[in-house]
Design a binder for these strands. Sequence first.
DNA 1: GTATATGCAAAACTTTTGCATCCTT
DNA 2: AAGGATGCAAAAGTTTTGCATATAC
Lengths: 148, 148
Amino acid sequence: MSEKTDLKRAGLKTTQPRLKILDILENSPVRHLGADDIYKNLLEAGEQIGLATVYRVLTQFESAGLVIRHKFEGGPAMFELNDAAHHDHMVCVKCGKVFEFVDSGIEQRQREAASKADFVIQDHSLYLYGICAGMHDHGRCSMEKNAA
Amino acid sequence: MSEKTDLKRAGLKTTQPRLKILDILENSPVRHLGADDIYKNLLEAGEQIGLATVYRVLTQFESAGLVIRHKFEGGPAMFELNDAAHHDHMVCVKCGKVFEFVDSGIEQRQREAASKADFVIQDHSLYLYGICAGMHDHGRCSMEKNAA
DNA sequence: GTATATGCAAAACTTTTGCATCCTT
DNA sequence: AAGGATGCAAAAGTTTTGCATATAC
């Protein structure tokens, strides 16, 4: 039960809704989920959890550093488990899937730009929007495993 | 009357609402504005323009390449005149102001990362969130001229 | 037992849309 | 005159909040 300890460590009571939501975030084959996706997921699993609770819990998880909240162009907020090294995102505007990538050089240059402007970075977001390999090669996404 | 030609060039009829909104975007001391800011600005100027029209016009301007729409963390969409070279943004979470910066190295590496993933970039956004020089040095923003 | 968390419903906020009317060409 | 643009009001979508009840420690 590491989910329980995850919550404790985050200073949150281990309640059923929190455990269930964390479970979905940890075990969903799709890594980036909207509050509504999680809510539907809970309903399908037969849980009696309100959408408001989903939002409240996700916001608490975000404050606790358990999840990262993304605001991609237009759509609703997407949540991702904060369980890996920092990375940026490519979002396919055709299939909606999200791909992650890392570039330490970009990170480095961001720090330099901020430092030059005497700006103290707390957070940053880099999103590339475009068309993924699968969609432009054969009209369907070829990288399901990294899916949205 | 270059505003008139701007609209013509964009394939848009020169209507009063469009002229007024373009005028605000061009002459406001604050470069990044929300639809609501523009609407209030119009009301203060005694104009009879509906908020729905402001949104419609801004969306048309965006399609025409006249403005760029930003979605900063949380808040409403912000619009900026597309009258300069591409740049990225630092957003001060204390004073709300927006600062622009350019780093060709970051742009280059973004292209490389996309290319490596066989991803065709259509658009991208890079936002740094943090505290600006003025706010952390003496509690008020020192760069009003670049203001939000 | 006490404080916190949850569920439901209602509200808040941003953005979009339907439709009658008005304006631009 | 004709088609597109606007204003208003209503709707849609996401997220937040108030409050009574239920739950965790």
